[in-house]
Design a protein around this nucleic acid. Structure first.
Lengths: 181, 181
DNA sequence: CTAGAAATGCGGCAAATTGTCACGCTTTAA
DNA sequence: TTAAAGCGTGACAATTTGCCGCATTTCTAG
């Protein structure tokens, strides 16, 4: 990675402007020329004009624009290395994404280093270098809770239901960690 | 599938003789010429003598022990349609399996019909089933553990350290999960 | 406007999980 | 061939979770 000759171009597709901006900045700081798009149409438009080297596609709850976007992007340029990122990960969609041509598939939350490693991953190379230290179990749990909580507009009961955990337990977890990241 | 011209040959690779026999019978009843192998070596031997049309590879151990079998089989005959079946399902290994050339990846328990559907699946032509639900806390934790464990080549002590959890606890989690899911 | 439904924030207790230490036994490295 | 690291296991205390109930406070129709 980290091209020695000029910055690599990267197309970031995600509905959420905040997430887009944060991740975009982090990638920028690591030497990528980042372009963001908030939908398939905009993403394809960008790619048509100037096909990027890499693409990060976020599958949010909104329809299936994410998976369908993969072959569309590859049709414009088969060399684009696409990584799928989603908070609603499932094995079924992971398999589908890879079959459609994505080079990797990550479940949120994923930090910039994990994403870079995913972009660099080569097919079936178990000896791939791993540099990023993984999130602790607790941290991972916290991130996930926050994300789902946000999706539910702060509704604790609904969040607990979706997470398969008791409402009381969720309350206690939230109370125990007022602020931290 | 239901092959139109004669029984299709299928290689079933699984350590567990009982599971092998049960599934083998079920597939036989559906018109497949089933050959079973209880290990990579035996599987490759069978495949070398007479490459099957289909193969079902069971990953009984977390990690890439079984995954390595995929390229080996495809090297003998690139036309083999391989489905990976495992009780230790995780997104990380699913992605790896597909990249290595498997046509599908299923989590146990799966019945014969599901497996047949998986064998028949064509690359990216069916509408992707999009699971519009976030992962449960337990599921997310499991996926993460699998990923880190893989990064550490199965080293439980190192994985526990990185995850900020006690080795004993990790062992208990690993021992408990495979039974379910 | 108002009754019923849903959500919230507690307290408490039993059940399950985790942290921790200890011991014997393989691998792996030096 | 030692020394260091890892693995599997048992046991017991410390925490955490599941699950009850209940008093308030929001929604959400009718």
């Amino acid at each position: 990675m980290t091209a020695a000759a000029g910055p690599s171009s990267l197309l970031l597709v995600d509905d959420d402007p905040t997430f887009c901006r944060v991740l975009g900045l982090a990638l920028n700081r690591r030497g990528f020329a980042v372009v963001t798009a908030h939908g398939s149409a905009a993403a394809l438009e960008h790619a048509r004009i100037d096909p990027p080297e890499y693409a990060i596609v976020d599958l949010n709850l909104a329809g299936d624009f994410g998976l369908g976007l993969i072959p569309d992007l590859l049709a414009l340029d088969p060399a684009i290395r696409i990584v799928v990122l989603t908070g609603y990960a499932s094995i079924a969609t992971a398999v589908e994404a890879i079959k459609l041509g994505a080079v990797n598939y990550l479940a949120k939350p994923a930090d910039a280093d994990q994403i870079l490693a995913a972009l660099a991953a080569t097919a079936g190379d178990p000896a791939a270098p791993f540099n990023a230290r993984p999130l602790s179990i607790n941290r991972l749990e916290w991130e996930h809770i926050q994300r789902v909580l946000r999706d539910n507009d702060g509704n604790i009961s609904a969040t607990a239901r979706q997470l398969g955990m008791h409402r009381r337990t969720l309350q206690r977890k939230l109370a125990k960690r007022p602020a931290r990241l």
